[in-house]
Design a binder for these strands. Structure first.
Length: 200
DNA sequence: TGTCCGATTGGT
DNA sequence: CCAATCGGACAG
């Protein structure tokens, strides 16, 4: 199974985000290969998106990679202890990214259990900061290309549209009306989601 | 340089 | 519900 080409990411974020469901995120590090199937993502659509880190055109040392062309890693450190992982999308000149919120563990489950310090498979990668810890993703991945050796995506299960649901994004109460936007995409029958709310 | 706070998690 | 824990953002 081959790596997804960078051209996959260099399309509009609202196209790429749902297509990421079912794809396999892989890291290859000294401890071994770990991977998981993407089951939950959120789209952050750029400088006009009040929930985005680049809202209003805010371009800083932390956010600069979001302005690059799609196919790069945007990671950030938050709450003094957590790393969150995003995939930059779109053409150069846009500032879009997809926030990866949950995976279904696949390869290297013993490595992931050791990194996470838990045995329950449902607690390994069912949250944005859990999956980075499980896959060994830290701030050194900032700006890395997703067709590299350490981290990449590969083709996975084809997800039928009927299995995909949407909801507002999680944890963005500061974003005004944007907190209602249906930019969270997830595989509705997955038991590995970060939150078990079904809404409506 | 000082203060404020978070696209979370895990325990109470 | 709330503490943990600290780098980035921004005001001054």
């Amino acid at each position: 199974m081959s790596k997804l080409p960078l051209s996959f990411y260099q399309r509009p974020v609202l196209t790429v985000a749902p297509e990421l469901l079912g794809k396999i995120l892989v890291t290859s590090l000294p401890e071994g290969i770990t991977s998981g199937k993407i089951v939950e993502v959120e789209a952050y659509t750029g400088i006009k998106d009040p929930a985005s880190h680049v809202y209003g055109g805010k371009k800083t040392e932390r956010t600069r990679v979001i302005f690059e062309e799609g196919g790069k890693v945007y990671v950030y450190f938050v709450y003094g202890m957590h790393v969150c992982f995003n995939i930059v999308t779109g053409e150069k000149g846009t500032a879009e990214c997809v926030f990866i919120r949950a995976l279904e563990p696949l390869e290297g489950i013993e490595i992931m259990k050791k990194r996470r310090g838990v045995n329950d498979i449902f607690k390994l990668t069912s949250g944005p900061a859990k999956l980075t810890q499980a896959l060994g993703i830290d701030m050194s991945f900032y700006g890395e290309s997703l067709d590299g050796e350490r981290i990449y995506l590969k083709e996975g299960e084809k997800i039928e549209p009927s299995r995909i649901d949407t909801s507002p994004r999680i944890g963005i109460d500061y974003a005004g009306e944007a907190k209602e936007w249906e930019y969270r995409f997830f595989i509705k029958d997955s038991p590995f989601l970060s939150v078990k709310l079904s809404r409506r």
